[in-house]
């Protein structure tokens, strides 16, 4: 589904990704771990299409399409969802409006009609209930005045409504208390399916107690230096990132 080959990228003149390769198939859950500054968030931003990041080498294909040629909105319409580490507050744009506009953009791309308002509300209420969100959040400004946990729940709500084929969740666990973490994890697990792939970008092993990954990759200095199954995350937790750095430099 997603094929990243020898990807090199820079931001503000600094090389961040230095030949990263990763292959993700439908149905898989991958966790990308690594210390701060290892390039985890850059990877997420490059795949989503942020134009502050300059791709200087390599390729990214999604469902056999050259992803790097596509605008961010076209990547979204093709089925990629980025859950932001810092969801943006947009006062004056209400949450329901954005959810609906996002769903309709995707539907239009697939040649489907706009979603019926009643269907939309029903679906949104259902998903919100599952995430433990008050339906009032639908009529609030997007992330406006939301707490950290509410923002992350809101990202998961958007994901649940959009049903992407590939979800990349950037540090979705950061700043969450245990209840919010559980709710978010349940939201992600509900979305696991043979047609869908999920990439979790995370600094800590904690999230993986609730979302069990099929693969764990460790990033260091813009490259994947180690891959394994979920036991790698536990090993990492125990030995710390220095262990990986030493392994990478050895």
């Amino acid at each position: 589904m997603l094929d990243i080959k020898d990807l090199k990228a820079r931001v503000a003149g600094n090389d961040i990704l230095n030949g990263l390769s990763l292959s993700v198939q439908a149905g898989e859950v991958h966790a990308i771990m690594g210390p701060n500054g290892s390039g985890k968030s850059t990877l997420a931003q490059v795949v989503a299409g942020h134009d502050d990041y300059e791709v200087t080498g390599g390729s990214v294909t999604f469902k056999d399409k050259d992803l790097l040629e596509l605008e961010p909105e076209d990547r979204a319409r093709e089925g990629i969802f980025l859950g932001f580490q810092y969801p943006v507050e947009i006062p004056g744009v209400n949450n329901a409006y954005l959810l609906k506009a996002a769903m309709n953009a995707r539907r239009e791309h697939r040649g489907e009609g706009e979603i019926d308002s009643f269907e939309f509300l029903k679906l949104a209420r259902e998903k919100m209930a599952a995430l433990g969100m008050d339906p009032k959040f639908l009529n609030r400004g997007v992330n406006e005045g939301f707490s950290g946990g509410e923002k992350k729940r809101n990202e998961i709500l958007q994901m649940a409504m959009l049903e992407p084929e590939l979800a990349i969740l950037d540090e979705t666990d950061s700043g969450l208390d245990i209840d919010a973490l559980k709710a978010v994890a349940a939201g992600v697990n509900a979305l696991r399916s043979p047609e869908r792939a999920i990439v979790l970008v995370t600094h800590y092993q904690r999230l993986l107690d609730y979302i069990e990954p099929d693969f764990v990759h460790v990033l260091s200095q813009g490259r994947i230096v180690r891959s394994g199954d979920k036991t790698l995350a536990l090993e990492l937790e125990e030995k710390g990132y220095d262990w990986v750095r030493e392994a990478a430099n050895a």
Binding site: R75, I90, G92, V93, A102, A105, G141
Partner: peptide
């Protein structure tokens, strides 16, 4: 940042600009 956020949700650049402009007036 807000423009990029809206674009990752499938709104094209023009639509995203309109949404943010409307929001500015809506207050």
């Amino acid at each position: 940042t807000a423009l990029f956020y809206l674009r990752t949700r499938g709104l094209d650049r023009t639509a995203a600009m309109q949404v943010l402009t409307h929001a500015f007036a809506a207050g």
